[in-house]
Write a protein that binds this DNA or RNA. Structure first.
Length: 526
RNA sequence: GGCCCCAUCGUCUAGUUAGGUCUAGGACAUCGGAUUUUCAUUCCGGUAACAGGGGUUCAAAUCCCCUUGGGGUCACCA
């Protein structure tokens, strides 16, 4: 039988990074078995703007290159793929259950149910449904329905039973039905609830493997019972551990971003993100974009391959060695049996290291595209890129070399794109290397002269010139180079100094040197 | 609190299904050292873990039980 897996997000307006990993596992299992991966939208709840709510989710799939065989936009033989459009199926299943007596209309008011729950809790007893409505005769029920009395439909839990599932990841898990309240499967208006709609659809879509996060484990007995009541073949289950927040075992959650901000394990990611996003004019502290969301990584300039690699290694491993896997590798090698049982915290450090690796593998034209797009968004270059700018960006990327882990890292070398007067100065280091040392200013002034006299402003001759200069002045390279770098780039460190000078060009270097010297003089005076 | 799940270096993990080859392997991070005009890279090296207690066994990280700890879930949400 063909393997069919599904990912069934509720349209919430963003794609959760943990959900993305669950989706990835589903996708991988389907692809590994030459099966199908289905996207179904669980929008049984009343929905707001679908475009807005679903857009970011589909966008995340497209960005990472995870395609779906059936679902929104592509359709398929079992459509529609929005639960809000599948009502007739639920109605039919509900009628079936009601007729066979496997479900019943419950006329108990929510308040009554609530009171019973509380009473049970007070007495430290397990709450199970009162089933008062079950004592009603068929006529009485009909009468109440006719009178328009409000009710919900509950599944009749076979209290003497046990549900035993054989989970691909967790093994045998047992649930005692005598401890379970009868779950509501449909509201008064007949609209289905999650567990019910899910079961009807999983069966209708012929899903063979339900791969989902562990938090759904407690829903599973209800769904098994529902499948049985409906006469379905139950799918196989695989409850994968959820993605925890860095350094913890807690499920990552959008609501806890403020807490994450102060977590030491998260620090690095936030620092990187804040810095890059602010250049893009995005307020990263507003929390509508955070590391919980897939979109965050795209905005900061992460590579899909790196994100995918990091995600797949969270709770899954191929062996005791393999860390680097392309999507094609994963597809070939992924199996459910090698998914681990315990929750795994996202590791920003490791994510970044995967980025470095995949960035180093990226063809240069793709690097160029990524950086170009960043620079445009930050308005550091024009939207219409002329050949000269393009060539410059190529050079800067070469200079950046492995400092470029995510596209946003290109801003570390922004000195090539900002106007001389907009160059920001690293004040602390400027003080230390230019203002404070007594010999720095005279050296820089002499050096300015030497540079202005030289004709050949390319890296190699400049290197020789600088070395000779230092030797002639009987000073160490360390007394000259950092000061020069500070003046022309505003930074204490960066790419190769001589390449930097060459690329900046003589005019620019002299101008910035003058500016730096002036700045230092004024600061010395005061 | 009930039910359910989980437990190996700081982190992600290998090893647990078929107990010995594990004086517990790898990666990331970290700390040294070499290379380098800075930073980064690269290369070498180091620190660092079987939650605790009982069993079973000639032998347990691996099997069983208990304890502890962590987590998930308990809706007319999904």
């Amino acid at each position: 039988m063909t393997v069919r897996t599904r990912f069934a997000p509720s349209p919430t307006g963003y794609m959760h990074i943990g959900g993305m990993r669950t989706a990835l596992f589903n996708w991988l299992w389907a692809r590994h078995n030459n099966g199908q991966f289905i996207l179904r939208i669980d929008d049984t709840d009343q929905q707001r703007n679908m475009e807005e709510a679903l857009g970011p989710i589909l966008e995340a799939f497209r960005w990472l290159g995870l395609d779906w065989d059936e679902g929104p936009e592509v359709g398929g033989p079992h459509g529609p793929y929005f639960q809000s459009q599948r009502r007739p199926l639920y109605d039919a299943a509900l009628a079936d259950l009601l007729q066979s007596g496997k479900a019943y209309r419950d006329f108990e008011t929510p308040a009554e149910t609530q009171a019973q729950r509380e009473a049970a809790e007070r007495e430290k007893k397990v709450y199970v449904s009162s089933r008062g409505s079950l004592r009603l005769s068929t006529e009485e029920v009909a009468e109440k329905v006719a009178k328009g009395e409000s009710f919900v439909v509950r599944l009749l839990i076979p209290r003497g039973d046990k549900v035993v599932i054989n989970d691909h990841i967790r093994g045998t898990v047992e649930f005692d039905c005598s401890l379970m309240p009868d779950p509501v499967i449909a509201r008064n208006d007949g609209s289905p609830l999650y567990n019910f709609a899910t079961v009807v659809d999983d069966a209708a879509l012929e899903i063979t493997h339900v791969i989902r996060a562990e938090e759904h484990l407690s829903n599973t007995p209800i769904q098994v019972l529902l499948h049985r009541a409906l006469g379905n073949k139950t799918p196989e289950w695989a409850h994968v551990p959820y993605v925890a927040s860095p350094g913890s075992k807690e499920k990552m959650s959008k609501r806890k971003i403020d807490k994450y901000r102060s977590s030491p394990q998260f620090q690095k990611l936030f620092e990187l993100g804040d810095q890059i996003l602010s250049r893009l004019g995005i307020d990263s502290t507003a929390n509508d974009l955070s590391p919980v969301m897939v979109a965050y990584y795209r905005q900061v300039g992460f590579l899909p391959a790196g994100v995918l690699n990091a995600l797949v290694r969270l709770g899954w491993s191929l062996d005791d060695q393999t860390e680097i896997l392309s999507l094609a590798d994963m597809k070939r090698k992924f199996t459910l049996e090698r998914v681990i049982k315990s929750a795994a915290g996202l590791d920003p450090d490791k994510m970044l290291s995967f980025q470095s690796h995949w960035m180093s593998q990226l063809p240069s034209h793709e690097k160029l595209q990524g950086c170009l797009s960043m620079l445009k968004q930050a308005r550091l270059i024009d939207d219409e890129v002329d050949a000269e700018t393009r060539a410059k960006v190529v050079r800067v990327i070469e200079l950046a070399a492995d400092r470029l882990r995510v596209f946003g890292d290109i801003f570390q070398l922004d000195e090539f794109f900002v106007a001389d007067e907009d160059l920001k100065m690293d004040d602390r280091n400027f003080q230390k290397r230019v203002v404070k040392p007594d010999n720095a200013l005279p050296l820089l002034q002499d050096l300015r002269q030497r540079l202005s006299d030289t004709e050949n402003f390319s890296a190699l001759p400049l290197h020789d010139l600088l070395q000779e200069f230092a030797a002639a002045k009987k000073v160490k390279a360390g007394d000259v180079f950092p000061a020069l770098r500070l003046c022309v780039t505003g930074k204490a460190q960066g790419a190769d100094l001589f390449q930097t000078l060459e690329l900046l060009g003589k005019t620019c270097v002299l101008r910035r040197l003058d500016r730096g010297i002036g700045l230092a003089e004024s600061q010395r005076d005061t």
